[in-house]
Simulated scan of single mutants.
Amino acid sequence: MKIAIFLPNWIGDAVMATPALRAIRQQFTGSEIVTIQKPYVADVLEGLDFVDRKIAWETKQKLVPQVRFLNQLRRERFDVAVLFPNSFRSAWMSFLAGIPRRIGISRDSRHWLLTDPIPMKNRSEPHPAIDEYLRIATYLIERSQEEAKVPLPLSRSMSLSVTAAEQKRWQLFLDKQSPEFKSLPMICLNPGGAFGAAKHWPTAHFAELARRIAMELKRSVLVVCGPAEKAEALEIVKQAKHPMVASLAAEPPHLGLTKAAIRQAELLVTTDSGPRHFAAPFQVPVVTLFGPTHILWSETFYEHGKHLQLDLDCGPCQQRVCPLGHHRCMKDLGANQVFQAVVSLLNQSSTNAA
């Protein structure tokens, strides 16, 4: 059997889909499994051995490249399409490609494009994305002609890998840092988020947190960042005014470098954005700052994670920009509250290690 798996378009969701990917690989050991995804999603999952091949799909390309991509899918002659995204586009493309069996959640008016529509849950009630991906994988496994090889219910444990090339990038960065920076335990900070400005924690708060971690906890602090957060990362370092606070802003953007940095970290403090999910696969404790988004949508049930969210009448609103203009859900979440969460999680980790 030849299986096409359409992966989610968001970095964090791609990581949350790894338990489902792993289960499909374990069940269909003799099948060819090919993922279809945006190029940066492939970068996140580089190094994992859950699939045989990857096909890049630039969804925003013009008509001619899209027709070429469709013809490529037709030539592959897939038997099954597994659709992790809930988009109409992924169902439409798998339909046009002539894939005879198409499995996905029935929503966004795409029911007629699916041969195996899985009932949609109530969208007004938050439910974890990781469980939705596992629900699709479970459906495929339970309805396959092969005897189940993986125990049900499926594990929520997420997976990531750091390749030799990615580790080399990290080592080259470390080689440029001071001996003291390299000698101290390191805590990573991850600002920003592709969702929108409403997820951002104030730069001044991050800077105060970084300074307190460096001064009071005697740790080095590294601000990780993507291209959109470079200016913010530089500003955090500038405002922190401490030699043990650095950033990746001067490095060529690469998700593999961020993965390697977080794997090396003692702890991660992050907004509710994609790199937040890099911590759990590497068993790195993580403090996640939630503002406009409901915690349950991206809950992964990671035992070494701590969620912080203020209880406000206006939230969580799920809006990309604060509709009331005050952004209290993030601005009122103070650096001291986050610092105490960091200390608590560090103490918990040291107790568990003992």
Rank of each mutant, 00 (worst) to 15 (best):
L312E: 05
R320I: 03
A280I: 10
C317Y: 04
L310W: 07
N336Y: 12
L310G: 06
G325D: 10
N336A: 15
F290N: 10
Q283S: 14
T293S: 05
S298P: 10
D332W: 12
P323E: 00
F301Q: 15
L310E: 04
Q340T: 13
D332Q: 15
G291V: 05
L333V: 04
D313W: 12
D311H: 12
A280R: 09
L312I: 08
H304A: 14
Q319S: 11
T293F: 06
Q309Y: 07
F301S: 15
G315M: 09
K331H: 02
F278Y: 11
S298Q: 14
F301T: 09
G334M: 12
T288V: 12
H326C: 00
V286I: 10
L308W: 08
C322M: 08
T293N: 09
Y302E: 05
E299C: 10
P316S: 01
Q318R: 12
P285L: 04
K306I: 08
H327T: 05
S344K: 13
V338G: 05
H327Y: 10
V342T: 00
L333A: 03
P292F: 02
L289H: 08
P316R: 00
E299F: 11
P285K: 07
L333I: 03
V286E: 06
W297E: 14
S298V: 14
M330P: 00
C322G: 09
V342L: 01
L310M: 10
L333C: 07
N336F: 11
D311R: 11
E299P: 10
H277E: 02
H304R: 15
C322P: 06
W297L: 14
F290H: 07
P285I: 02
G305E: 14
A335P: 01
D332I: 04
H326W: 11
C317Q: 10
W297I: 14
F282R: 04
E299R: 14
D332A: 15
S298F: 14
H307M: 14
V286Q: 03
G315K: 05
V287I: 11
E299T: 11
V342C: 01
L324M: 11
R328N: 09
S298M: 14
C329M: 03
L310A: 02
H307F: 15
L296H: 13
H294G: 12
M330A: 02
Q340S: 12
V338S: 02
P281M: 01
P281T: 00
C314T: 05
T300K: 06
C322T: 03
P281Y: 02
V338R: 07
L324W: 08
Q319K: 13
V287K: 05
L333G: 01
Y302V: 00
H326R: 06
G315Q: 03
V321P: 08
R320K: 15
F301K: 15
V338H: 08
Q318M: 14
F339G: 07
M330K: 02
Q283M: 13
Q283A: 15
D332L: 13
W297S: 13
H304Y: 15
F282E: 10
Q319R: 12
C322S: 01
Q309D: 09
